[in-house]
Design a protein around this nucleic acid. Sequence first.
DNA 1: GTCTATACGAAGATAGAC
DNA 2: GTCTATCTTCGTATAGAC
Lengths: 181, 181
Amino acid sequence: MAVTTARERTRHEIVRQAMDLFQAGGYNATSLQDIATAAGCSKATVLYHFSGKPAVLAAVLEPAAADLARLVAAAAELPRAAAQELAIRQFIDLAVVYRGVIDVIQDVIPMIAEMPEIGPLVADGIRLTEYMAGSEDPLERDLAKFAVNGLLGECRHSDQRTAEDLRRLCEIALRRLLRHG
Amino acid sequence: MAVTTARERTRHEIVRQAMDLFQAGGYNATSLQDIATAAGCSKATVLYHFSGKPAVLAAVLEPAAADLARLVAAAAELPRAAAQELAIRQFIDLAVVYRGVIDVIQDVIPMIAEMPEIGPLVADGIRLTEYMAGSEDPLERDLAKFAVNGLLGECRHSDQRTAEDLRRLCEIALRRLLRHG
DNA sequence: GTCTATACGAAGATAGAC
DNA sequence: GTCTATCTTCGTATAGAC
């Protein structure tokens, strides 16, 4: 698919500009008009390519969502202890790589229930916390969710922290919080 | 002050209804019209009593903000180890008592920078994490923030968990994350 | 002082011309 | 496929009734 249609070019440019705007100013503070202006088209054009603002968000999150889905699928093939090991290690990798995207997600958590477009991402996220817990004990599961919430918070304004600092902090926090069972 | 003026009654009713609506549907999803209708007055009346929607939020958060300010002031009087002890124990108490309010705060974190009305609350929250860290080591401070972020997340949809479960989870998580130094 | 009525600009979204 | 024009609802502002 080296052929790039006009449709694909416009779509891609909208997603690219939306990503930058979401990261710089947050999802809610970015209007469709802002995105349209940055992409060099009209608001109506954005809404021709995407069914609404949430659909633009879903397109921005898509690469991270795909990697997360791959991780969850891989963990499903493993025995519990190995799945926990994989989930923890890979989750930190994903968090570091996609920390800008996670910063965007923060903005949006309160409205997740009203955005079916990113439902699969959320479902995979929950499944990941279950693998990270490494147990069906409700307390361990809550601690895993606690860990993920803490990590999400650390990705806020993630441009003010180096990738190495973030990785080190995540490793220590997850080691302290999890696998005490 | 047993005398309740009409002014105070209207104001109080607006705050009470706003609290319920914010908790049920979130701050962003609740319009001034919703609040006015629930309180049995017009949108303009809400804006007569409060300078804008953020001011309504500040009034809703005020009791929690006052208790947090008292806690921070008390911690400031103590030596570091005692302040850490107090901060951790009391923070859990506040989180359990005000878990509904914390649920509301979640909705609003992304826009905190543009809401000077709740600036003092935020400043006290940051100071509290410093006491909870019990050290000026940047890593311990980040872990304390990590702990607070995790706890905020656990207060989401807090009506689906008993106060005892929440308290137990918080105590375990904070014990694991903090005072390892 | 307390409140209603009305109006404004910007938001997300839709309809229809080109 | 992209545009302009339009709709509704939001937060906000103000003029004036009682």
